[in-house]
Amino acid sequence: MMMTTPNLTVNIAGVTLANPVVTASGTFGFGREYGTLYPLSELGAIAVKGLTLKERPGNAPPRVAETPAGMLNSVGLQNPGVEAFIREELPWLKAQGAVVIANIAGNTIEDYCAMAERLSDTAVDLIELNISCPNVKAGGVAFGTSCASVAAITAAVRGACRKPLIVKLSPNVTDIAEIAVSAVDHGADALSLINTLLGMRIDIATRRPVLANNVGGLSGPAVRPIAVRMVWQVRGRVSVPIIGMGGVATWEDAVEMLLAGANAVAVGTALYADPFASVKITRGLREYLERHGMADVQELVGAVQAH
């Protein structure tokens, strides 16, 4: 029997990732911290912290709280603004050999378009439209919860954007497949899902919410079954590449996400218990493919045999 190394590469809207394991936006900063542990080029891609047109200070603390098998966050898109990113973070990230996904968020459609336009002239590889952040008052998730608004913002940004466009979907909707179809029909080259689920924790001693923002986004293993279900539902309706995320912590979780229909997975919250989670998942996937004599990781995509 001939043993060949399985092909782990994945093509997302014309951009080749060395492997299907990327970092989830907002969980990995701009790579400078976990980059002390392993070369950033070992990751399929890095989705950077959500960017806004102008610097944003973010929400008051406390911003994070642990939950059963997960966590809540209400960071509130603290970031230095798109220009500072282009000037101070992007050249460094590209010098590390990383494929860079710029995650953008705004208060208005004009903000999103201005950022997409600006980033189109840079070395960014893909743009991820974050219309699913539950932690900011105006904009954010408000754009992501109806088909009409998803259609409008996707079409507008598509017109302004000369990079492959990923639309990141919110799970805080009634029918995510409908939303996904709207995004694809109006120009999304790829989809990523899921962003966090809106949640809350209350300190029973003080009778006050644990987060200063009262509510926050739930992530981690607790949300994985929801993410898998949503990826599966969306895969049933669209053929564009999907980056699946939500609680992926091990290679087994990644295989599950791929079987549901994702072409790649993103890892976020799992990094906090194990900063090596993403690179371990890539290794685990490779070994899994070898054990099963599979030539290409993409053979797993959508291969679930539903009842």
């Binding site: 990995f28 911290e33 603390p61 911003r63 994070v64 966050n73 960071v75 906090y272």
Partner: peptide
């Protein structure tokens, strides 16, 4: 402050 990553990546542990 409450922390998640502990290394500067998640921006969870804000102090004004």
């Amino acid at each position: 402050q409450r922390m998640a990553c502990g290394v500067g990546a998640c921006l969870g542990c804000a102090q004004k």
